[in-house]
């Protein structure tokens, strides 16, 4: 019977699809499913004021969970707001960009959320008013596969809920 010939071939990588343009509509609202934009942004006790004027989110460098100086200032302002508005609780979401495995990004997002939580608690916000959750790379805000989008996705979002502490 015939010998089976053995031919060495290289497996060619699959060609990449062309890179698409980023959607830079700037309209991200996090993934929070809280009460939405309750109240007017001109009311300093409103969720809208917190989200827009104080800033509900902090961005992180690649692979990092350390707060930047700018991020630190945002979280300090969040702490002051939470201290002044003690009816609110918050879930701090940690997110990662798509450059990483699902598991690692879940853990990385948790680090980011914890960094924000720790600073809030260090400023006197009661820890029982705060929870953290990581979404890893499951909830991207921006969908292009470029640094402009990745930078927006490496974030924490402090999502407020009015009412009872847990």
């Amino acid at each position: 019977m015939k010998h089976l010939s053995k031919v060495a071939l290289l497996v060619a990588g699959v060609a990449l699809a062309a890179c698409s343009q980023p959607h830079l509509d700037g309209s991200g609202t996090g993934t929070g499913s809280g009460l939405g934009e309750a109240g007017s942004a001109s009311d300093p006790t409103s969720v809208a004021y917190f989200n827009e004027t104080i800033g509900d989110r902090v961005l992180f460098e690649v692979d990092q969970s350390t707060l930047s100086e700018q991020g630190r200032l945002v979280v300090l302002a969040q702490a002051n707001w939470l201290l002044a508005n003690s009816d609110f609780t918050a879930v701090i979401e940690g997110h990662a960009d798509e450059q990483g495995t699902r598991e690692y990004n879940l853990a990385l997002g948790a680090r980011r959320a914890a960094a924000v939580q720790e600073l809030l608690v260090s400023q006197g916000v009661a820890s029982n008013r705060l929870k953290t959750v990581s979404y890893g790379k499951e909830r991207p805000l921006e969908v292009c596969s470029q640094e402009a989008c990745y930078a927006q996705n490496r974030r924490s979002v402090t999502v407020l809920t009015a009412g009872l502490s847990s």
């Binding site: 990588g13 699809a17 890179c19 798509e98 495995t101």
Partner: peptide
């Protein structure tokens, strides 16, 4: 064994000869 924008999460066929995984394409 592979190269792409995003390959991850291998799993083995029961005989250890084949690997299945996730491939995600780039962009919006």
């Amino acid at each position: 064994l592979t190269a792409s924008f995003l390959d991850e999460g291998p799993t083995w066929a029961p005989n250890g000869r084949v690997i299945m995984f996730t491939r995600e394409t780039r962009g919006s």
